[in-house]
């Protein structure tokens, strides 16, 4: 079992190195590419020049935001998959993104950001996400017990209802608002507000820390709720906490960057194949893996047909989805998985 500890440390170091390497690469490339030696120069001299402002005002904030959001979404995914014991659940299955989208759409249609400021957009998104979370949660609690399967079905239905509502809002809204809504739904990591980026970083790190306190409980829950009770886990309390952590992470992410799909589904799945099912390593590696994946996707999104920028959700969907299908089908051909 010593070997297990070494394996975990090796994976951790590898993933941290991957995050750093991808971030560095992302700093270098873009519509104006900066050679590496110039970067060192610029950073050391700390003088305001064009390259300095590209790195510190444009690219670094995006990388930090991608790190926080990728980590949060992937973490929310791994928590939900662990507690539902279903590898196909992702943060958006619970209808949280739908709620956030309705909040943002209403904000745009009623022009609340004109009177309340730009920050009212994420605030509305978060309120929308929160109301869906509360709704899904109260509908699924029966006699003080959180019914996991009910939670899933209610979540999926609320997703459908909210997308219909969004279409309704879009159908009756003005053309100029339509652009804003579509743009938001596609998701983007361009965020001019630095305070919001720092807040996202804080939320993601706190989310990781708090959910890590539940890693042993998630391991026990993998055997089923009754077995977890036999192992001395307060299952009801754990489920509640985990659900709330995952919802807050998702709701917050969606309200800041819009809908970026697939991170919360694909990354936990791939990580499970790479590092194993033990949540003590799975939580951290999913977080780091999600962060790397979103930074890489965003880099691709802004460079592939530069200077025009693709929506990052398109990249995560295309890349993540095809890798997912490839890995899954290839696994079935091989005898017994390995």
């Amino acid at each position: 079992m010593k070997s297990r500890a070494y394996r975990w440390v090796a994976w951790l170091l590898f993933l941290i190195a991957a995050v750093i390497a991808i971030s560095c690469f992302s700093l270098l490339v873009g519509s104006s590419s900066i050679p590496f030696k110039n970067i060192v120069d610029v950073v050391l001299r700390r003088e305001p020049c064009a390259e300095y402002s590209i790195i510190f005002d444009v690219r670094l904030p995006r990388i930090l935001l991608a790190f926080a959001i990728g980590g949060s979404l992937s973490l929310a995914g791994v928590i939900l998959q662990g507690m539902f014991r279903n590898p196909l659940v992702e943060p958006y299955t619970l209808g949280i993104s739908g709620g956030a989208a309705i909040g943002v759409c209403l904000n745009i249609v009623f022009r609340l950001s004109n009177s309340l400021g730009v920050l009212s957009l994420p605030v509305c998104g978060f309120l929308g996400a929160l109301s869906v979370v509360v709704l899904v949660y109260t509908l699924s609690v029966k006699r003080g017990i959180l019914k996991i399967q009910g939670l899933l079905l209610t979540g999926v239905m609320i997703s459908f209802i909210s997308s219909s509502l969004i279409m309704l809002i879009m159908a009756v809204s003005r053309t100029e608002d339509l652009h804003g809504i579509v743009f938001w739904i596609m998701g983007s990591l361009e965020e001019p507000n630095n305070a919001l980026i720092l807040l996202s970083l804080g939320v993601s790190i706190i989310g990781l820390t708090v959910s890590y306190l539940f890693c042993i409980k998630l391991n026990a829950l993998a055997l089923g709720e009754e077995e977890a009770i036999h192992l001395g886990i307060n299952v009801e309390k754990s489920k509640r906490f985990l659900f709330i952590i995952a919802s807050l992470l998702t709701g917050f992410s969606v309200s800041v960057v819009g809908i970026i799909g697939f991170v919360g589904l694909v990354i936990p799945h791939c990580m499970r194949m790479l590092v194993g099912r033990d949540h003590r390593i799975l939580l951290i590696s999913s977080f780091l893996g999600g962060a790397s994946f979103l930074i890489a996707s965003d880099t691709l999104a802004r460079t592939v047909i530069a200077p025009v920028e693709l929506p990052v959700g398109v990249i995560t969907g295309l890349v993540g989805g095809s890798v997912f299908v490839y890995v899954l089908t290839r696994r079935q051909i091989l005898p017994k998985g390995k």
């Binding site: 055997l223 036999h230 192992l231 886990i233």
Partner: peptide
Amino acid sequence: IAVVSQGAPEESLTVEEFVLLGRIP
């Protein structure tokens, strides 16, 4: 109290990992 139930456990765990889960209490 420890319970040996009929439920089939998580398939991909190794026997040792599975037995170690019994130490959670």
